[in-house]
Nucleic acid binder design. Structure first.
Lengths: 246, 246
DNA sequence: CGTCACTTTGAAAGCTTTCAATAGGAGTGG
DNA sequence: CCACTCCTATTGAAAGCTTTCAAAGTGACG
C-alpha cells in the first residue's frame, strides 16, 4: 500500500535494534500506555488545515487520507493500515484529512511529547527518520504511478501493494469503495470497475464476496504492474535498516 | 517548484533560530567548508540504486531527479534548485537518478558525517525534520496534480511553482526542455507545448527568447491552477517554522 | 421484502497521445 | 559572417484511452 502519510513500523523497527544489548524502545512502544479510541466508519480523525497537535498509532481498521480541490475533486494520498503511525510528517498543520474507511481503533499521542521523547532517546531518532524515508519512497512510487502508468497498471499496482502490505496468501481485503480506489489511483470509479472486471475475466484475479479479491496469477500481475517494489515480497524483504545513516 | 527530493533551506532555516542567543548553525553551514564541484549539463550526479553515500548542496544550476520504468517511460520526481539540499531522504540507496539540466555547481558531504553532526547538534534536528516535511508536502502537491488536474492546470501549476521558487518579477526561467516538463507533469511534450501556446495566445503568459516565460496575468493563472499554495507568494509567506514540534 | 448505496456495464464524448511534418535556434565549419 | 546541420519546439490530424452520462444489477440493512 502506498501510504504517503504513514509507514509501517513493523518493517522499520526491525533487525538492528533487536540485537542491542538492552532492549531499545521502539517508536510504537510510546503508544503502549495510551488508551485506545474508536472511530466509526466515515468519521474523520482530523481535517486538512487543523493544527497538527497529535500523532496516531493505528491499531485496527483502515483510514483514507485525502485532499479536496475547490471544485470538489478529491485526491486520496494514501490508505493507513494497522501498524502505521499517522501524523508524523507535518510541521504546523495537517496537510490532509484523515477519515475512517472501516471502524478504526487508534491511540493518540501529543506531538510535543512524541518529539520530546525522541529528543531524549537517541535510539528513536533513526526510527523516525526511517518512517519519513519510507513515506517519501511511497510518495515517489505513487508519483510514478500517477504520472506514467495506465489504468490497468495502476489498478494492478494497487492490488499488489495491498497484497504486500496486508495480504494473506493470495487473498486481499479491499475495505474501501471503488470511488476511494479511483481517487487514489487518479481514475474514475467506472474505470477501476472495468479494470477489475477485465482482470477477473482473464483469470488474473478472482472477485470474491464482500471486499475480497484473490490474486490468481501473481507473476503475471507483477509483469503488468511494471516497475515497482513487486519483487520485495518474493524473498523475504531484507527489512530496511532503521538506523541513523552512518 | 515541486522538488520531492530537496527543499529550499532558505525557507526552512528561517525565524526561530535567528533569534537564538548564540548563532545557531544552519544545515547549509555544514557545507561551507566543502569544495565546490561542477557538473556539465546532462551529467549525472548519482544513479537510482547507488548506495546513498553523500548529500549535496546545490549552489547553482538546476538538476532533474527521475526514475525510469523497464520499458523506458520516465517520471521526473522533481527539479532541484540552488539552495536545495539533495539526498537527505534516503535510507540505503538513492531512489532516483539525479542529472544536471544546466551546468551545476554543488558541494558534497558524506552522509555519515552529516548525520553525525546532526546527532551532536540538537539545533540541526528541527531543520532536518523541516526539510523532510517540506519534501512530503511537495510530494503531495504533486500527487494531487498528477491524479486530479488536467493538462492546462498542470502546466499552469508548474509555471506558478517555478515563479514562487525562482521567479524574478513576472519572469521565470525554464531551463529544462519540454520533454522534461512533460515527464514531470505526466504529459507528453506535445501537450505541454500546446498548453504553453494556448496560454500565450490568450495573453496569460508571454513566451520570451530562450527559456524565458513571462507570467502576464498572475491572478488568472492562479485561478486556473486551482488548489495550490498559489496564495503563498501574495503575502510574504510566513516561513514555515523550522522547529522541532512542541 | 423493499429501499438505498455501491458496483457494473454500455455507449458516446472528450482529452491526451501518437504519428508526422514543419518551424525555429543554436552551434559548427567553411 | 553566413550556410548547414542537428536538436528542440510547434503544429496538425487521427487514434486511443479514459471519462462522462445513463441505466441496470447487486447486496446490505431495516
Amino acid at each position: 500500500m502506498y501510504s504517503q502519510a504513514a509507514v509501517s513500523l513493523t518493517r522499520s523497527q526491525a533487525a538492528p535494534f533487536a540485537a542491542a544489548a538492552e532492549p531499545a524502545p521502539t517508536l510504537r512502544d510510546l503508544f503502549k500506555g495510551q488508551s485506545a479510541e474508536t472511530l466509526a466508519a466515515g468519521e474523520a480523525l482530523f481535517w486538512e488545515g487543523d493544527p497538527a497537535g497529535q500523532i496516531f498509532d493505528v491499531i485496527s481498521g483502515v483510514l483514507r487520507v485525502y485532499r479536496i480541490m475547490p471544485d470538489g475533486r478529491r485526491a486520496i494520498m494514501g490508505f493507513i493500515h494497522p501498524g502505521d503511525v499517522l501524523g508524523v510528517s507535518f510541521q504546523n498543520r495537517y496537510l490532509f484529512t484523515a477519515e475512517a474507511v472501516t471502524e478504526v481503533k487508534i491511540r493518540r499521542f501529543a506531538r510535543s511529547r512524541f518529539f520530546g521523547l525522541i529528543n531524549e532517546t537517541p535510539a528513536l531518532r533513526p526510527q523516525l527518520f526511517a518512517i519519513l524515508c519510507d513515506e517519501m519512497s511511497a510518495a515517489q512510487d505513487q508519483m510514478l504511478l500517477l504520472g506514467r502508468k495506465n489504468a490497468e497498471e495502476r489498478v494492478v499496482s494497487f492490488l499488489l501493494s495491498v497484497h504486500r502490505k496486508v495480504g494473506i496468501g493470495a487473498d486481499i481485503e479491499l475495505p474501501m469503495s471503488r470511488l476511494d480506489m479511483a481517487d487514489y489511483l487518479g481514475l474514475t470509479m467506472e474505470t477501476v470497475s472495468r479494470m477489475m472486471t477485465s482482470l477477473a475475466r482473464r483469470g488474473l484475479i478472482a472477485l470474491g464476496a464482500r471486499h475480497t479479491v484473490t490474486l490468481r496469477k501473481l507473476a503475471a500481475l507483477r509483469e503488468i504492474a511494471g516497475h515497482d517494489a513487486e519483487d520485495e515480497d518474493i524473498a523475504a524483504a531484507p527489512a530496511r535498516r532503521a538506523v541513523w545513516p552512518h
